[in-house]
Write a protein that binds this DNA or RNA. Sequence first.
DNA 1: CTGAAAGCGCTTACAG
DNA 2: CTGAAAGCGCTTACAG
Lengths: 336, 336
Amino acid sequence: MSTLKARIKDVAREAGVSVATVSRVLTGGPVSTQLRDKVDAAIRATGYRPNLSARRLRSQHSRTIGLIVSDIRNPFFTAVSRAVEDAAYEAGMRVILCNTDENPEKEAMYLRLMQEERVTGLIFAPTRTSAEALSQTALDFPAVLIDRVGPPGLHDAVVLDNAAAAHTLVLHLMEQGYRRIGGLFGNTSTTGIERHAGFAAALATRGLPAPARFVPPTADAGEAELLDWMQSADRPDALIASNGQLLLGVARAVRRLGLSMPHDLAVAGFDNETWTGLVGPGLTVIEQPVHEIGTTAMSLLFDRLQRPGGPARKMVLSGRPILRGSTGARLRAVAN
Amino acid sequence: MSTLKARIKDVAREAGVSVATVSRVLTGGPVSTQLRDKVDAAIRATGYRPNLSARRLRSQHSRTIGLIVSDIRNPFFTAVSRAVEDAAYEAGMRVILCNTDENPEKEAMYLRLMQEERVTGLIFAPTRTSAEALSQTALDFPAVLIDRVGPPGLHDAVVLDNAAAAHTLVLHLMEQGYRRIGGLFGNTSTTGIERHAGFAAALATRGLPAPARFVPPTADAGEAELLDWMQSADRPDALIASNGQLLLGVARAVRRLGLSMPHDLAVAGFDNETWTGLVGPGLTVIEQPVHEIGTTAMSLLFDRLQRPGGPARKMVLSGRPILRGSTGARLRAVAN
DNA sequence: CTGAAAGCGCTTACAG
DNA sequence: CTGAAAGCGCTTACAG
């Protein structure tokens, strides 16, 4: 028989050994070659597959990583998730993925789920609300924050050097001749704040104004905001979008308004998504090391599990500027 | 105390009731209001959270859905996954997601994992190799195939009307004046085969040749193949790409060769990914009802769980053609 | 409605 | 190296 009904007890009977011996074969314990062969044969004969729930309960190890992000459809999180999952399965662990839609209530709910699953560790991209709440909540497992930071010194984190990256983009735009540089930032995470800081600082070095707008980090919000902005008095001649979703909204608005990049509006943003290289003259972006963010988060987590205690570590990874046509040099008005 | 150490036994002691009563409160069994209040208070006082592994083991219900796709980074699967996850959490179930990279060995491995997790049901996009193997393997849980079909009559499935969709695209291209219409198809799934069939059938109605190339369903393979094709003798004047990854490769090749759509090459494809509306004149595509594919798969699964037995059902959903500039009318050579 | 007891399928000291 | 026994944290008949 090879139904799923086979338990370790059935294998033991089939092999003529104790359940302890079967268990040892399964977990790589010390067993004589002779018995091991018998057990292996019995496993094949019965079609036995261990019951992971029982194993987890008894061993008190869930071998499970929680992964909480805002939306797996955001390509940044898609890529990070894939890296996390690969690393997890590699290490014999499994992943529980949750989408919060930047909703603090969902975050709280999934945090409870993580407790109930007795996860080994958590990788978490919190909203600002939840990030602050983290200082109150004592988690029963180590957590590594990604993309966004929490209360200082409390959790390990892997983030981009956001201020530096935004600074680089602004510097580039200024070098290209732009002076009215606007910024569109997400309003739900610390990331938007940090990128805004770098943006404002760079413009301050030249005494330029730093018009900024904060919106929900979605394509729709970005599109609507830019449509409004471009029809207002303080219309910018260059724009920075602080993440891939907002940048997508900007690209849509540009298309809808029939603007030409960079002539009517220079555009730069974050996240080297597939489409950024294919649109118009190509969009200048900061590429995030998405895969490395995922693997680094897992490394920090495994590290923390092996050596609990010790100070919180923040890994700050650099983005890579990819300069494309959307930030080509500004054409000066011809003297006439 | 509010550590995770609290077990049902601790709550019972705190509330002055039996563990059975606590369990009944937890699972919504019949308990007097008086005791229920005591237990609720004790749960709050102890910070108790149920242990899902224990619950699963004892109740023999994992409340878990397995989801096996080729790569979560493929936007089609990203969207389907999100729909599946939302439906699952809605129903109090959790999802185990696995990426197979179109690799039959990984598929077999994850299928074993599903057994060990004792999943309630499975949603699976198999390669052709695994789809065939499915006729041999008896699974211990119901499975719903998505995007691709398996052995006839064996499993529920949710698929696009692939042949009809490809037929529609070819018809449109012929109406626009194109006659040398090539097709680029994925070679790992039944989907590519079905789309090729519709493609060939449509061209046959006008007695036109149906030059087709089968490649791995990746952007790189698509790009390389089109670069080669466009430099060959049988260079097409219109092209169909059978999925979003291949279409992306095509878009890259078009850009690299400096071709103008539709003048140098008309392009149509599958999957209405974000970028398809933003590239050049916009790409004509068949939009798949990605969200509905996910929710329908879950419905079929829940249905099957409630009423086992009964014939396998195949849900065939229609794609929606989105006509854009990439398939604009062919400019005839001017008589001179 | 309530409690005492059995048992889900494993792993892991303990003793030999 | 091997086996008998305890027990992980729950749920669920069973009896009252």
